[in-house]
Simulated assay, not measured.
Amino acid sequence: MLVVRPAAPADLDHLLELAILSGPGFTSLPEDPDQLAERLDLSRDSFTGAIKPQDRWYTLMLEESETGDVDGVGSVKAAVGLHRPFFSFRVVNNAQSSPSLGIKLEQKTLVLVNECTGWTEVGSLFLKADRRKGGAGRLLSQSRYMLIGAEPELFADNVLAELRGVFTPDGACPFWDHVASKFFPMEFDEADRLTGSTDKQFILDLSPRHPIYIELLPEPARAVIGKVHPQGVPAMALLESEGFRPNGLVDIFDAGPTVACGRDNIRTVRDARRLTVAISEEVNAELPALISTDSVSGFRAVRQRAYIEGDVATLTRETADALKVRAGETVRVKT
């Protein structure tokens, strides 16, 4: 059975493997054991409540319970931009006209902004290639919203997600090569590393001071602004199905889009119901449901069959054991 559970320091080897497989441009999964170990420590402290709610970064692992194999990762960062700026480019429409000539123009520009301070971020969604079918990605993605819905007061009113921008099959990034590298004279991987491991002052120091007119950029750069990496297309579809929409921001290095949604408008947060657990040897239900625990500290999630009658969800013993819940306790269920 596939189970989504909190990451722990013992998951370092699993997380490093996923980071290596994720490839370039996945800022939240650096191929750096020390950074990943710090992140796992932070996740442990987040789930146990050892740190302030706004400083928490919850990391979730997708595990095959029978084998112990870890095949995916996802995360929820309680708040961005509080300790380090959250820089993006905003795509701005500029209208110009010459009444005497009867000419009207709309020019799009990229403007460096520091917005979304304090917003919650869902991210780090990555699965091994052989797990990208059969609903595993949807389980892992939606589990992040079940976590938010378990204790919504721990999260911001607005939720965002950044998606990786376009890279060519040989690992080149058109926007970086034609635009960003002109302001950051280093390799993409180095800039990516600095973004995740410093206070980002270098971005403020080196970024363009004036708007960049998109029409003046080379076509390969223009073509990828706000576009998603091919591997990120399924993730984008999942986000859109939950109610997320582009908000006009793009990444300053690869121009990947940012999408956002109000916390209480996220479909899974809104539609999941709190139900009381009953346990039976067999469950007669036509389709599996998304089921999670009702608290952040002991969070676990599965997609299994549940028979729902009134305010009671009847689960099999195997499902209850996977969630580590007992009869009479509360779960959240989205059908």
Rank of each mutant, 00 (worst) to 15 (best):
V122D: 02
Q231G: 00
G23H: 14
S46V: 04
T335I: 03
D294A: 15
P211W: 15
T120I: 02
W57S: 03
R84W: 01
L36H: 10
A237Y: 05
V228E: 01
D170Q: 10
Q35P: 00
S124Y: 06
G25V: 00
P234A: 13
V3E: 01
V70R: 15
S88P: 01
Q35F: 08
G248D: 06
H178L: 08
A172P: 00
R209V: 07
G74Y: 10
T293K: 09
V269C: 09
L110S: 12
L125R: 07
D264R: 15
Q231K: 00
A191D: 01
T314W: 07
P99V: 14
G226D: 05
A180Y: 06
F126C: 05
R317E: 08
V250Q: 08
K334H: 07
R300Q: 00
I51V: 14
A180F: 06
D32C: 03
R90T: 05
M61N: 03
S22K: 08
S98I: 09
L275M: 11
T268Q: 06
E318N: 04
Q54N: 11
G134C: 11
W57E: 04
S295M: 04
R193V: 00
I103Y: 12
L112R: 14
G243F: 10
P234C: 12
L16Q: 14
S292M: 08
V70I: 15
T59M: 04
A313R: 03
A19V: 02
E281L: 10
G137V: 08
R222Q: 15
E17H: 14
D205E: 14
A79D: 03
G102S: 12
G49C: 12
K182C: 06
G226E: 05
R56Q: 09
G262W: 05
A7Y: 03
V91A: 06
P246Y: 12
L16V: 12
V113Q: 13
T268H: 07
K77Y: 03
S98G: 02
